[in-house]
Simulated scan of single mutants.
Amino acid sequence: MGEREFAILVTPEHAPPINPSPWYAFSFVARGDEGISVRLDYAGARHRYLPKLISGATVTAMPVDVVEDGSSARVHIPAGSGIVAAQEPFDLDRHDLVLDRLAALPQAERVELGRSLDGRPISAVRFGDPAASSLVVLLGRQHPPEVSGAIAMEAFLQTVADEIEAGQLDNGRIQFLAVPVLNPDGVARGHWRANRGGKDLNRDWGDFSQPETQAVKQWLDAAPRSVRPVAMLDFHSTRRNLFYVQGEDETGAREERFLAGWLGDKTAALPGYPFSIERRNANPGSGTAKNWFSATYGIPAYTYEVGDEADHQATRRAAAVLAQSFLDQIMLLDKM
């Protein structure tokens, strides 16, 4: 648009997206003393993510001017060089580090559940006694830009690993399947929402039309008959911190006690991380992981949503506390 003015059109990988999440990232070099101005124009979406200036290990939120209808936003970038991104990059290599830490636990193994449409591995770690009858399933990154949810899952899993290494968890009673990045193609390609097949994976539970959801289902189907899921968490991001849970008329006393013990007294108790609990009835046709696990196994199944702009340190601290409390409730499940 000029020597130091640019416009970028940000478009989805398929249309129309559900709950559009207009991810963007670009590198820049602005020589001299003057910065540059970049206008972000959105197709099929409104501005959602605050731009972050990334220089080395430093991530700084940037001011932005958004037009009234949200269809475009202007960012003023200082002189120098770096990356501007909608959310800080959280790439597949970083997910691999989480998987490697879990795979080093006692009674742990790294598992390739399947392959994505681009041929990337759908990687998981199963840890705990493989003969344990109680299985906890932890899913993440169905939606690529939801980085704050990935940060929470990373801290959650690190806390679980710490508890196991400290001998605080009875591995003989419980095992875990952790899938930190279910949509590796979308993460690698910078998609807003979908996998390589143009499908929102969190609308494919039940249909299982995509290799990523098929891979989890096939692993569950191949497990010994004595092994059964007892709880599921699916990590995501949205505009504020919240947990989606089933409606009261769809859960039994056991699930209600689990929810009360895990989250009931913590909505305003975690420093810098207030959250709400929102009940959403299971719509059989919705295709979300929460609803499918709840309907199929009759277990506590929740969507763990982290605010887009939630403070990362507060998110990590809250995830550590919530992981410990979650484990406490899992160990009590047999008595509920």
Rank of each mutant, 00 (worst) to 15 (best):
S286F: 01
E305H: 06
R280T: 04
G264S: 13
K290T: 08
S148Q: 13
S55I: 13
I122F: 03
F26I: 09
S134C: 08
T288G: 14
R257Q: 12
P20S: 06
A194D: 11
R31D: 14
D221P: 09
E248L: 11
Q87D: 05
E255I: 12
N171H: 02
R115G: 04
S123M: 04
R39V: 10
D69W: 10
S237G: 13
R120C: 00
P184M: 01
D41N: 07
A222Y: 05
V179I: 13
N171M: 14
G44Y: 00
A253F: 07
K52T: 01
M336L: 15
T58M: 11
I36R: 07
Q214N: 06
P89I: 01
G82A: 11
A85F: 04
R280V: 07
P271Y: 13
S55N: 14
W219M: 12
N171A: 10
L138P: 14
V29F: 09
A57N: 06
F275D: 01
P106A: 05
L201R: 08
D204A: 08
S72E: 13
G247M: 06
G285N: 12
V38K: 10
I54Y: 03
G298P: 10
I151H: 09
Y302V: 13
A282W: 07
P89C: 04
E3C: 07
G264D: 10
P300E: 11
S81N: 13
N183C: 07
A301M: 06
P271H: 10
N283K: 01
A103G: 12
T159K: 12
P284Q: 05
I8V: 14
R74T: 13
P20W: 10
Q218E: 07
E305C: 03
D204I: 03
G119D: 05
D334K: 15
R316S: 14
R126E: 12
A61G: 10
S148Y: 03
T238R: 09
S21R: 12
S21Y: 04
R254D: 15
Q158R: 11
Q324F: 00
N202E: 07
P224V: 06
A7W: 10
P106W: 03
L201G: 02
W219Q: 09
L40P: 08
V230M: 03
G35S: 09
G197I: 09
T60F: 02
L138S: 11
V98L: 15
Y49M: 07
